[in-house]
Computed example of a mutant assay.
Amino acid sequence: MKTYKDKIKYFDLILAVVISFILIKLINNYQIFLTSLNKIISIISPFIFAFIIAYILNPLMKCFEKRFKLKRGISLLLTYVVIILGFSLFINYLLPKISSNLLDILKSIPQFATASQEWFNKILTNKEINNLMNYSGNFDLKPDFLISKASNILSTTLNALISKTLSFTNYFIKWVFGFIISIYILADKEKFIESGKRFIYIVLKEDKGFKFINFFKNLNYMIGLYIGTKAIDSSIIAILAFIGLTLLKSPYSLLIALIVGITNMIPYFGPFIGMVIGFIINVFFSPIKALFVLLFLFLLQQFDGWYLDPKLIGGKVGLSPFWIIFAVTLGGGLYGPIGMILAVPIMAVIKMYLDKFLLRYDKGISNKEVEKSSK
């Protein structure tokens, strides 16, 4: 007669066979599976956006609750009032100026190309430069070719930027729905967190579930610490850049300052990108002014790197420059600009756990050595 344990063994065997069969079918028909998965993600994307929005707005709501001792409903209302007012100000005042600057640059590309060609021709007519080119022998510079290539690259980049901006409007309705749904998520966030914890404990059991939850707690803390302080740092740099560029009478000072602030979020590479863009935009109007803008942005980034950034972030992330550059390169290669920004806090958490693992390993070796020496 079959016992209860034998029945469980047969059931586990049947379950393993069924799961193996399903996995084989999924591997053989992975394209259909990916298509279906993309459709499902597209359908539930408003809920995904809602969780992202709720995660971003949660610190502001917690600030109202803890610092001002307000109830959840009032804190929630104030949070969304502040966000809606911020978006309204951005749409009414900043967005039209930024859009007009981008369109103006796009329209001015032929003039920039002509001015650059004239500038190159003036340089090439210089006797000393001609002698240097003739002396080198192999040097064959074709300014028309270079200018046409440069203008094509700039035009393609700006067109791609505008097309991306227009394609983003296709997600506008989903983001609006996500914004509305996020209100309900923040209102009952404790219930969602508790349900998520219970599910993790059921699937991973208590010990592994606790480690899994603890890992994401550390990740959440590190992302909040890094992104929050870096956002404050970049906002200060953007404001200082706008003031300095306005005093230097730089064209498109608001657009350049915004680019400097956004790119400053990316460690090491970001400030360089902002400086180069500011220089390129100004060089078409005045090469001398472009050099002053480049020098000003360089000094501003030195102030950020040597004083402001260490003052705000300091050594809280706990990563050496090598690991930061490695994380930014890897994150950017995999997920673009968002990956570059999130790579540093994620790498910081991974390094923290790796250090703990190595410390345990070193302790294990030292304990074994002690045991061997005592024998």
Results as ranks from 00 to 15, higher is better:
Pro251Asn: 13
Leu219Met: 12
Ser163Asp: 12
Leu358Ile: 11
Arg360Ala: 12
Ile32His: 13
Pro96His: 03
Lys197Asn: 14
Leu34Phe: 13
Tyr268Leu: 14
Lys5Ala: 11
Asp309Phe: 15
Thr157Glu: 13
Ile227Phe: 13
Ala50Met: 02
Ile48Cys: 01
Lys249Glu: 06
Ile8Glu: 09
Thr165Ala: 14
Gly339Ala: 10
Val18Pro: 00
Pro345Ser: 08
Ile14Arg: 11
Ser20Gln: 07
Ile41Ala: 09
Ile266Ala: 03
Ser320Gly: 06
Ile325Gly: 02
Asn131Leu: 06
Gly244Gln: 00
Glu190Ile: 04
Leu85Val: 15
Leu161Glu: 03
Phe269His: 02
Gln301Glu: 14
Pro321Trp: 07
Phe326Asn: 03
Leu141Thr: 01
Pro46Trp: 08
Ile266His: 02
Ser163His: 06
Tyr55Asn: 11
Ile109Tyr: 10
Ile83Gly: 04
Ile239Ser: 00
Leu106Lys: 14
Ala231Arg: 00
Pro287Ser: 09
Leu342Ile: 07
Asn264Gln: 06
Tyr30Met: 12
Gly261Pro: 13
Tyr221Ile: 07
Val344Ser: 09
Ser88His: 03
Ile43Ser: 08
Leu106Cys: 03
Leu23Asn: 00
Leu248Asn: 01
Ser163Leu: 04
Thr169Asn: 08
Gln117Lys: 15
Gly331Ser: 08
Ile44Asp: 11
Ala150Leu: 10
Val260Ala: 03
Ala16Asp: 10
Glu65Gly: 01
Ser167Val: 09
Ile280Asn: 03
Ile32Ser: 15
Val17Asn: 09
Ala241Ser: 15
Lys39Asp: 15
Pro143Gly: 05
Ile237Gly: 02
Lys372Ala: 11
Gly178Ala: 05
Ile313Gln: 09
Asp207Ser: 04
Asp355Phe: 07
Thr329Met: 11
Leu295Tyr: 09
Lys149Pro: 01
Gly315Gln: 10
Leu342Tyr: 04
Lys149Ala: 08
Tyr268Lys: 02
Ala54Phe: 12
Lys25Pro: 00
Phe64Ala: 07
Lys5His: 12
Val81Arg: 01
Asn131Arg: 07
Ile223Tyr: 05
Ser36Phe: 14
Val82Ser: 07
Asp12Phe: 13
Leu158Val: 12
Leu248Thr: 03
Gly318Ile: 06
Lys205Ser: 13
Tyr171Arg: 06
Phe279Gln: 03
Tyr4Met: 05
Leu299Ile: 10
Leu297Gly: 06
Asn220Trp: 00
Ile98Arg: 00
Ser155Val: 02
Leu77Phe: 15
Thr157Phe: 15
Ile84Lys: 05
Leu359Trp: 03
Gln111Trp: 05
Ile341Asp: 05
Leu77Gly: 13
Phe292Gly: 00
Glu206Gly: 00
Lys69Met: 09
Asn28Gln: 14
Ser155Trp: 04
Pro287Cys: 06
